[in-house]
Amino acid sequence: MSQTTSNGYQPGFGLAARFALREMRGGLKGFYVFIACIALGVAAIAGVASFSRALTEGISAEGQAILGGDLSFSLIHREATPDQLAYLNRLGATSQISSLRAMARTDSAGNQTLVELKAVDDPYPLIGNFELTSGKELQETINGRTEGLRNAVAEVALLARLGLEVGDEISVGKTNFRIADTIELEPDKLSSGMTVGPRLLISQEALQETGLVQPGSLIRYIYRVRMGYNVPEAQLQQAIDQTNTLFPDAGWRIRSKLEAAPSLQRNIQRFAQFLTLIGITSLVVGGVGVANAVRSYMDTRREVIASFKCLGASGGFVFKVYLIQMMVLATIGIVVGMALGA
């Protein structure tokens, strides 16, 4: 009588994989819940990740437009010194924006509301187009006068809040303005972060006339520099480093187009973390479904497992066979989930 085997032989992973694949010839019947549970959880997490990445990448890609330049230097309370301005002008095309919160009043009924007042110069905007509802040029409009009053352009929300129409008067500080147009598109709006009121936009000269520029006024002076087209990250960093070396005490906050809207990016990140947490929770809850599906499947395989053990399979080998099957099914679930969530 011949012994067919060497006593020490241990069936390996390859044989277990072959057995597992043979066992799966019956198809995925009975595994739809298993696959669906994993696919849904993975889809939720992948969906959140790809959504937040799309937003973040969108902000990065449009960083120059959102920031309104390649670099932005912002000062509070005081303007840049002539030295600093000359330096910024050497870096590239420069535009100055002054932004503050002010009360806008209507003469007639004494209505008033808080506005985000923004004064811009002629080069503004350095990137993108500022669009007015009428289609007129921004600078032409705000530098002009209508019936003796300086022109201002406002967001539609401001008109609605104060019950005004284009052509009506509005007073800010000591000056009366004529609302000459409404804002259709403000290209750098996202970089302003949180706002408390609707936008009112005037020229730099007009701002000086309002009398709001006083020592201690909470005015933010923003200087934007456009260095060129598609300026590489290294060059931006070099410019920032050089600025810090030349003007270590300037006290300005420097932002590059790579961090155009930091508060928005932080919000997206937080939101994504929150949604990922929900996705993980759903995956854990789905794990109960997975466990049930596996248990009921293993019940149906009990007879086959018994046959394997009668034919000389060790417990470890049987475990490997079914572990591989579960891993294959989980992989299918993950692939389906990633395809759905991507």
């Binding site: 066992e23 799966m24 080998f317």
Partner: peptide
């Protein structure tokens, strides 16, 4: 889920 041939081969495969 195994053919007749595979069923018969199982104990031999398990013993290497």
């Amino acid at each position: 889920n195994m053919t007749a041939l595979e069923n018969v081969a199982v104990p031999l495969e398990l013993s290497g």
